[in-house]
């Protein structure tokens, strides 16, 4: 760190002298320009376009979109799905991190790889695996039909697909963090007579709360925004199995341009809030989050 500040201060003063480990100022300016332009054009611009198109025909038209009952239903369904999928993966993430980080056993690396598996599977395949399981021609298709249980083209399928694609978020945030923190605190608590649950609630949880929040934040953003996996299992039934991203697609294909972007702007807003909270967590509590690339 000190070297960086040293190098920075060395390049600050006037004259032509520059630290031997710094680039010529022209090169710096060009690189900064390229980076800012690339990010601006590829990432910033599409974000602005979403809001601009949403308000293309004025504020009144924008809010008209949300008076539509199908749109309202899509929003509620998205909230419902996230309300089930996120807590499910939160509980799993905590249990997985406890089992993996607080004990020493063989095969840990393989287990972590398996937990990360959903990230390397195409979202469409994430939907497909449940269709193969529960669909009409699937393994359990006949049995489910006989018992009048519908999973595919219904809400349970959407929830399952969402759980799959958001599966690793909390666990992969907590495992490295809890491994870093070691087991001494917990061992001390146990030896002082605390029960396992007390140890978790009073010792472990306060230590990992910001990491936990970070994982939940990213998990939620993905849960509300998932498109591919949900598209495969939902059946696109308006007012029934349409989540917000699927509703955007339907509006868009119906040439309801402003309405599509109005719904999209809500999700873009969610993305912005997610990024802001995430950045704040990183600035404020960086030592209480897991290190490494994200």
């Amino acid at each position: 760190m000190s070297e960086q500040t040293l190098a920075a201060s060395a390049t600050m003063p006037p004259e032509t002298w520059r630290a031997p480990t710094a680039e010529v100022s022209v090169v710096r300016l060009v690189l900064i320009g390229v980076a800012v332009l690339f990010i601006g054009v590829f990432l910033g611009f599409p974000l602005l376009v979403v809001f601009f198109e949403a308000f293309l025909n004025g504020v009144a038209k924008y809010f008209e979109t949300f008076a539509d009952s199908d749109t309202q239903h899509a929003i509620l369904l998205t909230l419902l799905v996230a309300a089930i999928a996120v807590p499910a993966n939160l509980i799993f993430g905590v249990a997985a991190a406890w089992a993996i980080a607080k004990y020493d056993f063989r095969g840990k690396a393989l287990l972590i790889t398996l937990i990360d598996l959903p990230f390397s599977v195409s979202p469409v395949i994430a939907g497909l695996i449940y269709v193969i399981m529960f669909g009409a021609q699937g393994y359990l298709g006949d049995w489910l039909k006989a018992h009048h249980i519908q999973i595919i083209f219904a809400i349970p399928g959407i929830v399952l697909a969402t759980i799959f694609v958001t599966f690793p978020f909390v666990a992969r945030e907590l495992i490295p963090l809890m491994e870093e923190q070691g087991t001494q605190d917990e061992e001390a608590a146990i030896s002082l007579g605390a029960s396992g649950w007390q140890t978790f609630r009073r010792v472990t949880l306060p230590n990992v709360k910001w990491g936990l929040m970070y994982g939940v934040l990213l998990c939620n953003a993905r849960a509300m925004g998932e498109f591919g996996a949900v598209a495969v299992v939902s059946g696109h039934i308006r007012g029934l199995t349409n989540t917000m991203p699927l509703h955007i697609e339907i509006l868009y294909n119906d040439y309801q341009w402003v309405a599509a972007f109005a719904v999209a702007s809500l999700l873009a807003l969610l993305a912005l809030v997610t990024l802001i909270v995430k950045t704040l967590l990183e600035w404020r509590f960086s030592d209480e989050l897991a290190n490494g690339p994200r």
Binding site: P46, V49, G225, G228, I248, E249, Y252, A260, A264, A271
Partner: peptide
């Protein structure tokens, strides 16, 4: 990572 893919797609 944060912006839903459908939103990115239409934008």
């Amino acid at each position: 990572f944060a912006l839903p893919t459908a939103v990115a797609g239409i934008a």
